[in-house]
Nucleic acid binder design. Structure first.
Lengths: 190, 190
DNA sequence: CTACTGTTTGGGCAGTCGTCCAGGTCGATC
DNA sequence: GATCGACCTGGACGACTGCCCAAACAGTAG
């Protein structure tokens, strides 16, 4: 007992999953409707039945996946009550992302696509603001000075590290953690 | 008295300049030979006369421009003999790059393209290694602990800040400088 | 059974793509 | 003058693009 509406939702989901594979593989601008349909095991015409346009499909897929990933990283913080273990846990969680893995590439591809897509830029700014707020609150709780700016720099540093890691693979938590820890634990009066 | 060889070099240069405009505008993968020729004010066939292929043209243009930009940022350091002014000068030099300006976008586009182009990845790793070495040497001179890892994190943070600045415009030197300064001036024993 | 709904199919449309190349241009050399 | 070689032109080639749509399909309701 499978209604056609249920099969429809499933096809929609398969297309979104295919997009999350193809964006890192080929690049945001090189993903085509026919590649998407083939990867999803579905007829080409279905792309424009389930979505308004190709960019709209990519936008829904990318933003959804990014929200999930960010909230996983955030969750790590709830277990930490001091700077050293919190930062270390978070950076360790990021060690899975090597800079060339699908998730890292998806993030950077989406950042770039957002500079050419108004709607995507708005969605992305929302995701990022949520992460910064979450980080600010945690930093405030452990007594870090200037928590808002520190959170902004920390969030940016994390994405920069993923970007550089593709060219500099030994940029792991072990190397980075002690350096960034100074940002969180420095004494007052810089 | 203009030889045809001289005009040839000029056309080649015009194509490279056009590439530096179009890569940020349209995105690396969306730059076409005909757009390039039109922007350079030149016949379409010339692209494949002066360059082996489209990716080869983009590679030469991007790597050349990045080398120049990086060396400009490096030069700022030669005037600074302490952490606070060096970092501040460098971050101020970066305030011109808003995250949506052509130079910032060129950097990120090139990072991404490098994940799909072996030759580009090698060239880019070379540029980055040069910057990290330059930064490491400067940090060592002013007595920063663990200069190599600090330089790597600092270089990555800079690119991350450019990436985030597109979505968070108030992430300027004024906000960032005091935070990153902690990385350079923390006391021993974290 | 018929009528109706939402889903699916596969090809058509006009346009762009990277690359190639036969032929044309023009200054330098003999 | 003729010859040479580098530089340039503009169109041709097959392949691909996003989007659209008439027609086929299946499952539900009357």
């Amino acid at each position: 007992m499978v209604t056609s509406a249920e099969r429809g939702k499933q096809v929609r989901q398969q297309l979104l999953t295919a997009a999350l594979e193809l964006i890192p593989e080929r690049g945001w601008l090189a993903v085509s409707t026919r590649q998407l349909a083939e990867r999803a095991g579905v007829a080409p015409g279905l792309v424009h039945y389930h979505f308004d346009s190709l960019p709209a499909l990519l936008r829904v897929a990318a933003v959804g996946a990014m929200r999930e990933t960010v909230s996983e990283v955030e969750d790590v913080l709830t277990e930490a009550t001091d700077a050293a273990t919190g930062l270390d846990l978070m950076l360790r969680a990021l060690d899975d992302y090597t800079g060339t893995d699908p998730t890292s590439l998806l993030f950077v591809e989406t950042y770039l696509a957002a500079t050419r897509d108004e709607a995507l830029r708005a969605d992305l700014a929302d995701v990022l603001a949520g992460f910064r707020d979450r980080l600010t609150h945690w930093l405030d709780g452990i007594g870090t000075p200037d928590p808002a700016n520190t959170a902004a720099v920390l969030a940016a540093s994390i994405d920069g590290l993923l970007l550089h890691r593709a060219l500099h693979p030994d940029l792991t938590a072990r190397a980075v953690s002690p350096v960034l820890l100074r940002v969180l634990t420095a004494r007052e009066g810089n």
